[in-house]
Amino acid sequence: MDKIENKLGTGCAEFQDELPSLMEAGADISNHPHLQQCHTCSDLVRDLLYIADQAKLLLPLHDPSPQVWSNIKGTLVREGVMGEDDDPGNAKKNFVVRR
């Protein structure tokens, strides 16, 4: 059955057309009848779920260069809304977050 489905692509095409809405519905599709008999679609679903799961684990890991704060401060000082004597760099040392 699996071999015939893969060769002809019947069932698979219909299932894959339906797949975005099945996944977005958040339902458990592992018991979908088509997946019980089709390894290709079963692998596909597993991969897509794996990618979505891995994406959730991506943390913000990059800091902007110090130049970004210099530019922000420079702009605000030029606009006259921030004083020039604020010392960039002190903030990190002195800021203790209390929750």
Binding site: L59, L61, I72, L76, M82, D86, P88, V97
Partner: peptide
Amino acid sequence: NGDGYSFELLYTMHKRRVYSL
């Protein structure tokens, strides 16, 4: 209220998340 020092504190706290986005 325009306090630059406090604004810098907020920048320090949130720069990584904003930049990564």
